[in-house]
């Protein structure tokens, strides 16, 4: 017996929505999905008429769907936005070079301008070279920290007003869990925000239009829309600890599908006790980027790479910041601790 679409009650349903459990036909699902993203954009007032918006594009499913939906909505609801694609080339052979090909195809399909910034031109290091020095452990720290800054630098080159990223509901929920497991109260409070407030020079406000979209629905959308996207895991193994949070979230979702939204709801309603010490946002005294320490994480990591002490930025070594700033050499004991360990 064919199931009818619960929305139009006319056509045959082709999918069951992971988010609500309703059976929908293809058109009604597209409409619902796009409409939800629109509602999110409108309710959170993510954009203003006439703004230039950079879409952080990796070539993966989230950013491909984001670029598609943004283009559709911009035309349908006359947002009056000028959209651009912004990609970061981390320099990972066999992974990013392939996915960037997808982005280039997207650029042609969606007729959007594309800017690619690479780690090599910004930092003088590709991820391949970094992994060669630090090994497969902790390399995600470098990639993550550098990417955050690279996106901002790219956005400034493109002169965009805002960046939107493809973070979906699963990503946000996973980050909430992750920050609880790490006891990181400052990030726990920040991570559910749909957009960052402008934090100063050199930082472009960011937002997550897909914040309430389930990962599974994004895949469904891409699948039925036959969108072209790249789906390969990064060759430099995913972060092990985040993997635990991810598996846990998927298990939660299988027990109760609303769990993802429930976790986000929890995250949005947490409140921090008065008097809990929070990091104060300042600027890096070397590059001027936002930082809660004397030196931003990216400068510390880079310093570590350039000095041949890759562990400098891993873990907490705030006490060494003064030494780095004044270009003093480290003691032998300090150096020994920070050299890469061979396993």
């Amino acid at each position: 017996m064919p199931v009818l679409c619960s929305s139009c009650a006319d056509k045959r349903a082709v999918l069951k929505r992971p988010k609500t459990g309703h059976s929908l036909c293809k058109e009604c699902f597209f409409w619902a999905f796009e409409e939800e993203v629109h509602q999110t954009i409108v309710a959170a007032q993510l954009f203003k008429h006439g703004e230039t918006v950079g879409i952080a594009a990796s070539g993966g499913k989230d950013s491909t769907v984001l670029a598609h939906v943004m283009k559709v909505l911009n035309e349908r609801y006359n947002y009056g936005l000028e959209l651009m694609l912004l990609s970061v080339d981390e320099g990972i052979t066999g992974y990013r070079d392939d996915s960037l090909e997808t982005v280039k195809r997207n650029q042609q399909q969606y007729e959007l301008p594309l800017k690619i910034v690479s780690y090599e031109e910004l930092y003088g290091w590709t991820m391949d070279a970094i992994v060669k020095q630090v090994g497969l452990k902790n390399n995600c720290t470098f990639c993550g920290v550098f990417r955050r800054q690279a996106l901002d630098r790219g956005a400034i080159m493109l002169k965009v007003d805002k960046i939107c990223t493809g973070h979906n509901a699963d990503d946000v929920a996973e980050t909430v869990l992750m920050n609880v497991l790490r006891g990181d109260i400052a990030r726990l409070r920040r991570c559910t925000a749909i957009s960052t407030t402008s934090e100063g020079d050199g930082v472009v406000p960011r937002c997550k239009p897909l914040k309430y979209a389930y990962e599974k629905e994004i895949v469904l959308y891409a699948y039925f829309k036959k969108l072209d996207y790249f789906s390969t895991e990064c060759i430099y193994s995913p972060n092990a600890y985040r993997g635990h949070a991810r598996t846990f979230l998927k298990d939660l979702e299988s027990v109760r599908p609303s769990s993802i939204m429930d976790v986000i709801h929890s995250g949005e309603n947490l409140s921090v006790r008065e008097g809990v010490k929070m990091p104060v946002q300042g600027t890096c005294s070397r590059c001027g980027y936002i930082s809660s320490q004397a030196l931003c994480k990216s400068c510390v990591l880079l310093e570590g790479l350039n000095r041949g002490l890759p562990k400098l930025g891993i873990g907490k070594h705030h006490r060494l910041h003064d030494k780095i700033l004044s270009q003093q050499p480290l003691t032998e004991k300090e150096e020994r601790k920070l050299k890469s360990v061979d396993f």
Partner: peptide
């Protein structure tokens, strides 16, 4: 998240 869920439920049941 609360409002987003309500919207999803409504949208899945109303005719586009």
């Amino acid at each position: 998240a609360f409002q987003a869920t309500l919207i999803s439920e409504q949208l899945s049941q109303t005719k586009p």
